[in-house]
Every structure is written in structure tokens, then in C-alpha cells.
Design a protein around this nucleic acid. Sequence first.
RNA 1: GCCGCGUUGGUCAAGGGGUUAAGACGCCUCCCUUUCACGGAGGAAUCACGGGUUCGAUUCCCGUACGUGGUACCA
Length: 508
Amino acid sequence: MNANHVRVRFAPSPTGGLHLGGVRTVLFNYLFARKYNGTFVLRIEDTDQGRFVPGAEEYIFDCLDWCGLSPDESVRKEGPYAPYRQSERKAIYRDYAEQLLESGHAYYAFDTPAELEQMRNDLRTPENPAPQYDHRTRGMMRNSLTLGEEETRRLILEGTPYVIRIKVPENETIHFHDMIRGDIHHETNVVDDKVLLKADGMPTYHLAVVVDDYLMKITHAFRGEEWLPSAPVHILLWQYLGWKAHMPQWAHLPLILKPDGNGKLSKRDGDRLGFPVFAMDWTDPKTGEVTTGFRERGFLPEAFVNLLAMLGWNPGIEQEVFSLEELCELFSMERVHKGGAKFDYEKAKWFNQQHIQRTDNARLATLVAPFFEKENITAEPEYLTRVIGLIKERCHLLPDFVTQGRFFFEAPAQPDLEAVKGKWSPGKTEFFRTWAASLDSIAPDHEALEASFTELATAKGIKKGDLMLPLRIMLVGGKFGPGVFDIVAMIGSAATQQRIEAALVQLA
RNA sequence: GCCGCGUUGGUCAAGGGGUUAAGACGCCUCCCUUUCACGGAGGAAUCACGGGUUCGAUUCCCGUACGUGGUACCA
């Protein structure tokens, strides 16, 4: 593996449903990797034992599989840098934390959570509502800097719980280049001494991400904008560990915001506004609460990926509908927007509609069948495929095929006869009885059917226009659907006759 | 509060010192369709504000405002 082989990673913590924004981060990683013939690594960030959620890891894999964004290396497909679960790499991090201790860039801290809270309370003022553990305060805390070597050694020998913190230097400016934002800088004086190794021996994200990115030879690190404020800590760590030359290139992705109001898009917003936020259905194992996903809502994975790609990125050409392959070719990190994007569900549905039109009917049939089953409608594949050809252009989501197509499978339960009742006449009843009776001898194609319909209408002296809508409502149940004679041809003469007769009875 | 990062129509956005400031979604009107959609043709609607720099700023610089993120032994 040569030195400039692109390696990227997505490092989720398995704590629940996979959010839109998470999938987009995966997507940008994936596209970047494909574009440069690189490797896409999935690393499980499970260093917080308190937040372990059973099933969450499996769910992440399922989502990525559904989206077609499967990783090249992961806990399921180990490459040369296993293990890929951070909890299984625990021992590794300690070594590096100790290295930092030795070089004086980190220190032991024995402060209990209560003592930390005490400090924050004592120091809190209106001007400084969130006092930090930093160069100003570390001198008044219980750590190896204030206690001295001997006392520190004694406390450790006694088994006193401790954490290891980075010692952030004073009066320095940390610069780094972001592929999307350009030069970014932070003053170290406002960066706090982040915990690197927790009391339980697990690393925090800050230590783990640097160590693993180095060890796994990650060349480009893409993550959400929420990580920007802690970037200086990571840069410092790359430097202190002596790996600065191997530091990946950074790109901090803009956030996906809620459509109304402000703030990051959350699961709650989806519930509130009526659209999915997770990729697939997620069942909270504790509460049993189900949050619906894009997949179950009736999105095609390629549409989901497409709409995500266009949230915060665009290729600068007029085309908006793309396959994953096209996206791989076109993608570039430099064209990612800096500002956050509000999620627009209407546009999301439009993307799905566009992809439905581009999908062949047989595949749609297999995707749509479960939605019919849910409604207890048995849809025979070949027939379903033909029905889909007739109704697909008016479908935005997969369940639309059921609402737009159920009358192909069963008579309308409650035809909206009110719409024609007022203008009904015995002559019309007679017309329909006569026409229905003639159906068996007419070729089942829409032209022949329409010709006979027109001919009989003329013979009876009734305007064809006064008969079309009634026929539609008898067969479909309402004012919608494809050409009415296409429907007759599709459902056949027996069903047509039955529906006409049933309606006639009601109109009598 | 402090720090970081942002800001082109309602939304996604192209553009970037001189333009009639693209396109898409949504909305409205019309056409097509003896239904509803699809499709087509139009329309309303935008460079946050204030200072500079400049012959000329939406574009560059500085402020302000606003938004957003962070400020955990969570990621």
C-alpha cells in the first residue's frame, strides 16, 4: 500500500438510529474514496460504555448496505488494521497517553466529578458561565502538576482514580488547513485541557481519533462541523505524538439544519414535521419506540443518496439527478458548501419521484410489493409490473403505488358517486348496461374500447363527455388515475362489468 | 459570556469586481389531458446591514447584526 493511497473513515458511535447527517458524512467519505480509488473504513467509536445500545452497530451496517455505501474495511471485513472497534483497542491508547505523560504534554488529574463541579460552580460568573479546566485553573486542581511527582506516585499506587489530560500550551496559535474552509486558527489560551484517558481506562474521542487515524493510515478526515472547536486539541496531539507529517487533511462538513426555525436537524423535528430523519426504521431497545426511516417511508436508496449529496454540495452543472456512479465521478470536497443547509422534505420527495421514473418496472414491482402486502393486497408480479407502467409517473413515494393503484386489484370500496348523482338519468343507466354487456366481444385494448364507447354514446344521443367521468368513478372510485380505457383493458371485462353494475345499483 | 464557523429568492443553490444575478424544489397563471398526476409555457420572489478599497462592489477588506456549533471522564 503506497503512501498516497487515499484512506478515509466514518467513525460512528453505536448509540441509536443513523441520522441523515451521518449518512451524508458516510456518503462524502464514500464518494471521495471511490473517486480516488481509495479505501473506505468503518470504525466503531464505542469508547463510552455508558452509552452502549444493543443492536445499534448492526443497524449501522444495515443502513449502509441499504444505501449501497458499504465500507471496504470494518469489523465485518477486517483489513490490516484490525480491530476496528475501539473498545477492543483499549490497551493501545494507554501506551500513547503514557508517551504524552513522559514528554510533558499530558498530566494526571485526580479531581473527582464532584470536585470538577465544585470548581465550575465556584468560578462561574455572568461573564464566564462555563469555566474550563485550562491553563488558568489547572494550578488550583488536584493533578500531577500541583501535587508533585511523589504524591502523584503515591495516589496512583493507592489506586486513586485518575484521568490523563492534555496540557495545552499558553499563547500559541494553532493553524490548520480545512479542505472546505481554508485556513482555520485557534488561540490555545481558550482551549481547555481535554481528558485523553478516562478513569475507566478508555480513551476519549480526542485521543482515540488521533491514535486510530494515525495507526489506520487515514489520509483524509471528514467529519461534521461540530468538531471544529476541538480540532486544535487534535492538531496538538498529532504534533506531540510526533506524527505531524502524517496528519490527514481535514474537512469539516456543514450541518444539516431543521427546515423551520433554527438549529441542527434532530429526530424530534422529523416527528414534529412529519418526515423521516433516520435512514431506516429504528426501534429503541429500551422504550420500544419506533422511529420511521426513509426506507420504510418509501424512498429508493439511490434517491436518498442523491438528495443527501445535493445537501451541501453540488457539481456546478445544471443536472441534479444522479446515480451513485455519477456522483463518484463528479464529487469534489472543494465544492462542498461552508454554510449549513435546511432540510427540505418537498424537494426530497421530488428526488424520489425522479428516481422512480428512471427505475424499471420489474424492479419497482419487487420494491412496491411489500407495501401492497401491508394493505392485504396480493399483487401478482407480472400484473403488478404492468400496473406500475401505467401509474408510476404520478408516484413520489413507494406507498403512492398503493393509493394510485389499488383499484387495479380490488373494486373501490366507496366510489365517489356523489360527483355524478345530480346529473344522472335513466338513459345513462341504460347506456352503461348496454356497453357493459358488449364488453366481452370487444378487443381488450384501449382504442377498440374507446371506439365502441363513443359509438354507443352517439347512438344513444348522450354526450361522451357526460359519460367519461361516471365510468372513471365506477372503476376507480374517484377522480384520479390513468386513462380510463387503459384501466378497462387492464382489469378486464368481468371486473369492469361488476363495478359498473354495482355502481348502477347505487345510482338507481 | 467566551471561542470557532457561517450568511445569494420561502428552501437547495450557480456565479464572483462591470451579468437582464443561472438552475431546481415549492407557490401562482396558462396549455396538454373529457379525471388526477406527469409534461410544457409563463410569473412573483434574492445578494443581511454599515463603513471602506475601487471609475465601479453581490463579489475584496473591516466592523455590526443574525444564525449555528463548541464550551463533558458524549461522540
